[in-house]
Amino acid sequence: MNTPSYFAPTGGLPPQTDLLTDRAIVTEAYTVIPRGVLRDIVTSNFPGWTRTRAWILAKPVQGFATTFAQYVVEVGPGGGSEQPEPEAGVESVVFLMSGRLDLTVEGAEHHLEPGGYAYLPAGADWTLANPGETPASLSWVRKPYEPAPGIDAPKPFVTREQDIAPTPMPDTDGTWATTRFVDPDDLAHDMHVNIVTFQPGGTIPFAETHVMEHGLYVLEGKAVYRLNNDWVEVQEGDFMWLRAFCPQACYAGGPGPFRYLLYKDVNRQIRLT
């Protein structure tokens, strides 16, 4: 595949001469957090992490995300954490967008470069460290793991986007494809974090309306996204949260590919009690 491109925010502040108007939108059905609001003064620090800051994009609050949390994390040179996950029942996916990271999972060492992807099951022993001389930026998705009767919990794994062939969607001539890091039929997993790619002009040709909640972080390119009743322009570095059953579709605007990291909850019965 071609060398992938991943956008990561760098913070800073706009000049006092800039207009206040921006593209941020918060509704009951969806939220758009544009890259222009990911500034220094809205970062968070985490206990147990050194030389690290994070932009928290989604967390479970009333009227917003219900199943997951998602961050962009910037780890400075020499920074990282020996105990990054504070909750034993929470699983994670980390996806590296820039820089280098050393990841240790259950005693096994891995060296991540941009495109590196790791699934870290609930209760796993893992650490992260930046051995380089420049900051490393990653997307971090966290979700409480929901066990299923008679099914063993999934094991950790580490891979790269570059090593996985995208799966074209049917009847699209390859203009819409998904890089799947987990087999959709593997019921051990209760979430998928994949990369969706549209070539210029590619489209979702109907308004998807489904039970899965979404977090979408745009890695590359631009598009016009249909969210509920609205058409919204988005670009690399933007984040979208879509509630369950929010109608959704898009047109990729070009001139290059439009790509995003997509979270969704999957493979579990609806809890009623």
Score class of each variant (00 low, 15 high):
residue 53 R to N: 01
residue 73 V to R: 08
residue 70 Q to W: 02
residue 78 G to M: 07
residue 41 I to A: 10
residue 35 R to A: 15
residue 57 L to Y: 04
residue 70 Q to P: 02
residue 56 I to P: 05
residue 35 R to L: 02
residue 89 G to Q: 06
residue 83 Q to V: 00
residue 33 I to G: 01
residue 56 I to R: 13
residue 39 R to T: 13
residue 36 G to K: 03
residue 37 V to Y: 11
residue 72 V to T: 10
residue 85 E to M: 15
residue 79 G to Y: 02
residue 43 T to E: 15
residue 58 A to Y: 01
residue 35 R to Q: 11
residue 61 V to M: 10
residue 35 R to V: 09
residue 54 A to P: 00
residue 89 G to M: 05
residue 48 G to N: 03
residue 49 W to I: 04
residue 90 V to E: 05
residue 39 R to I: 14
residue 51 R to T: 00
residue 85 E to S: 15
residue 33 I to H: 11
residue 71 Y to N: 14
residue 58 A to E: 03
residue 58 A to R: 05
residue 85 E to K: 13
residue 59 K to W: 03
residue 76 G to T: 00
residue 34 P to N: 07
residue 66 T to F: 04
residue 34 P to F: 07
residue 59 K to R: 11
residue 69 A to V: 00
residue 54 A to G: 15
residue 75 V to Y: 10
residue 53 R to I: 11
residue 51 R to N: 15
residue 90 V to P: 14
residue 44 S to N: 05
residue 57 L to N: 03
residue 47 P to R: 05
residue 52 T to V: 13
residue 40 D to G: 06
residue 44 S to M: 12
residue 88 A to T: 12
residue 42 V to D: 10
residue 72 V to L: 15
residue 47 P to A: 04
residue 72 V to F: 09
residue 35 R to D: 14
residue 75 V to I: 15
residue 70 Q to M: 15
residue 34 P to H: 06
residue 37 V to L: 13
residue 32 V to S: 10
residue 61 V to Q: 15
residue 61 V to E: 15
residue 48 G to E: 01
residue 68 F to C: 01
residue 37 V to Q: 13
residue 68 F to Q: 07
residue 52 T to Y: 09
residue 62 Q to P: 08
residue 81 S to G: 07
residue 73 V to T: 12
residue 45 N to T: 05
residue 77 P to Q: 06
residue 44 S to D: 11
residue 37 V to K: 10
residue 37 V to E: 11
residue 59 K to E: 11
residue 87 E to S: 12
residue 77 P to C: 12
residue 43 T to Q: 11
residue 88 A to E: 12
residue 58 A to S: 09
residue 34 P to K: 08
residue 34 P to T: 02
residue 65 A to R: 04
residue 53 R to C: 04
residue 89 G to N: 08
residue 59 K to S: 09
residue 49 W to L: 08
residue 85 E to N: 08
residue 65 A to G: 00
residue 79 G to N: 03
residue 44 S to H: 12
residue 89 G to T: 07
residue 57 L to S: 07
residue 52 T to G: 01
residue 75 V to N: 06
residue 32 V to T: 10
residue 36 G to F: 02
residue 84 P to C: 04
residue 58 A to K: 00
residue 72 V to H: 03
residue 66 T to V: 14
residue 61 V to W: 04
